[in-house]
Structure formats: C-alpha cells, structure tokens
C-alpha cells in the first residue's frame, strides 16, 4: 500500500490532461455580468417591460459560466464545456448588448420591424402557451408525415434495389414524380384530402420519401458483392441476405437519405402550415405577420430553428449509434 501511495502524488492527473486555464470561462462570465448591468442600469428609450427579467437571465447565464469554470477541475466535462463556449459567450454578450443599444436603449431602428431583445423575451413570457402549442402541433404533424414517408421510402428503396421486377415498375414512376417538389402538390392535396391535416401529412411524407427511396436504393445497389459471397457460403437464405447483409450495408446511404428527407420535410411543413393548417409554428408566423407582431415572428423563428436543429441532432445521434462501425463520420 505504501509503495502505491508513494507513487501516486507524482502524477495527480494520470490521464495526462493539461490543466485548463479558467481565464476564458471567467472572462465570459464577467462579460455576461457586464451585459446584465448594461441591461438593467442603462435607461430604456423604447417602451419595454422586460429589461429586469432579461438582466436576471443574463446574471443566471453569467453564474452558470462561472460555476462551470470553477467546477471544471473537479468535473472535467464542465471545464471542457466552459472552455469551448467561452469565446462564443463573450461574442453573444456583446451582440445582445449592441442589439439593445440600437433598439431599446437608443431607439435608433424603426419599430415595429426591429424588435428589441426585451420584446422577444416578452413574447416568450406572455405568449408561451400559444407558442408551445404551435411547437407541439408542428412536431406532431412533422413526426407523422416524416415517419410515414421514411418508412415508405425505405421499403420502396430496398425493394427497388433488391428486385429487378419491382425496379422495372417503380423506377419510371420514381423518375417522373420524384423530382417534382412536394409543394407543387399543395393545391391538389388540399382539394383531394378530407382535412388540411391529412393533406399535410401526405405532403410531408411525399417530400421525405423521395430522397429516402433514392438513397436506400443506391445503398442496396452498391453493397459489395463480397459480402453476399461471404453470406452465401454461410448458407444464407434470401431473407438473410436482405436483412442481415443488404440493409446493414446500405445504412450509411439510408441515413443520408433520412437527413435530406428531414430537410425537405421542414420546408413542406412550414408551407403547409402557412397555407392550410390552423396550428403550428408556420401558422403562428403567418398569424404574427397579420398583426404586425414582428417580435412574435422573430421569437417563433428562433423556436423553429431550435426545433429543426434538435431534430437533426437527434437523427445524427441515432446514426452515430447505428453506424459506429463506419469510419470518418461527419459530426453535426
């Protein structure tokens, strides 16, 4: 025991991680404190209600940055995090202060087109119920359409890639219909389908399924023949070849298709909500524009951006788990 303890103090950081300097994290925290002081102390020229709330949030942010930095030695993940976001945090503090300066503080930009940070915050504090409801409806609508479209696209892609007969019949249809933007179907879809909701699901599914089909198909078609040879010498059945060889080998392509399909589904979702569906973030945007509530629009755009990037992040997480065997994956 003594031999071990006598060795231990020589290497307090056995993993060899260099001690992170706390300076950047603390500096970022101070920048946020300064921004909070600016928000609270400098008198507003515009008529805004939420300066103190904003300042409080900025103090919270500053506190979090400082705490993460100070805890960084004990919890390496926190230290690495605070170090990596420090520069961006400083920039954000400066940008938000500048934004306030030209809007709330000095009233240099014309209202209502240029909303202040306080006005955006007010949208979140006062209209969160409607925004949240819109977000929920958007996510639900998107999920239904996307999952249906992805499933259909995947099944079609596998069958076209696997079976020559299916390919013969489906390929021409795919070539004719696939490149047509899903939004071109909007007038027809809203007319044919019983409700705008079902029409939107159809449109989102359509937009999703095309890239998923094509990439799944190309994935299945490009599986190395060597894998099939290996599997066949194990006595593999057709079923085995499809489910244990073709599909796993095609998954890298499939994920590219799912990614492209997700992008396409976002745009169809927003257009569908603006044109027919009476809920969701697209509808909220449209509604806010009708009332010239520009702050609400900005607030909704921010929520929408967060939604889209979160969904794409989730897709990438799923891919990283599924395709751990593949090398050189792009990080989202």
């Amino acid at each position: 025991m003594t031999a071990i303890t006598s060795l231990a103090p020589a290497a307090p950081r056995p993993h060899g991680l260099a001690r992170l300097s706390p300076a950047p994290g603390l500096l970022a925290g101070l920048a946020w404190l300064a921004a909070a002081l600016f928000t609270a102390a400098w008198p507003d020229r515009q008529d805004v209600d939420r300066s103190l709330t904003l300042a409080a949030l900025q103090v919270l942010g500053a506190g979090w940055l400082i705490a993460a930095t100070l805890l960084g030695n004990a919890v390496p993940r926190l230290g690495i995090w605070s170090r990596s976001v420090a520069a961006w945090a400083v920039l954000l503090a400066v940008l938000v202060s500048f934004w306030q300066l030209v809007t709330a503080k000095l009233d240099l930009l014309p209202l209502p087109f240029f909303a202040s940070p306080q006005a955006l915050l007010e949208v979140y504090t006062d209209d969160w119920a409607r925004l949240g409801d819109s977000l929920l409806h958007s996510v639900l609508l998107l999920a239904k359409g996307y999952l249906i479209g992805a499933a259909i696209g995947f099944a079609t892609g596998v069958s076209v890639g696997w079976s020559r007969a299916v390919g013969y019949w489906v390929h021409p249809v795919l070539r004719l219909i696939g490149p047509l933007p899903a939004t071109a179907w909007i007038p027809l879809a809203f007319f044919v389908f019983p409700s705008s909701g079902s029409a939107s699901i159809f449109l989102i599914a359509l937009a999703t399924s095309f890239p998923v089909t094509v990439l799944t198909w190309s994935g299945v078609a490009s599986v190395s023949g060597a894998y099939y040879d290996v599997a066949r010498t194990l006595g593999a059945s057709q079923r085995f070849l499809i489910f244990k060889v073709a599909i796993p080998a095609a998954l890298p392509h499939v994920f590219v298709g799912l990614f492209m399909g997700l992008g396409a589904s976002f745009s169809v979702l927003v257009v569908a909500e603006m044109l027919g569906v009476k809920s969701g973030l697209g509808w909220y945007l449209q509604w806010a524009q009708g009332w010239a509530a520009y702050a609400s629009m900005y607030a909704a755009l921010l929520v929408m951006a967060a939604m889209c990037t979160t969904l794409i992040t989730l897709l990438f997480r799923l891919r990283d788990r599924t395709l751990a065997w593949q090398k050189g994956l792009v990080k989202w």
């Binding site: 190395s224 060597a226 040879d229 290996v230 010498t233 006595g235 060889v245 796993p248």
Partner: peptide
C-alpha cells in the same frame, strides 16, 4: 453455396457492422 464448404477469403471476409 452451403455451410458444408466454409470459405476463408483473402480479405473482406467479415461483415464490418
């Protein structure tokens, strides 16, 4: 092909996933 004749190829014998 059948499992009574097992083959070891020069490379790419294993399924990478």
């Amino acid at each position: 092909p059948g499992p009574d004749r097992a083959v070891v190829f020069q490379n790419h014998s294993l399924l990478p996933w």
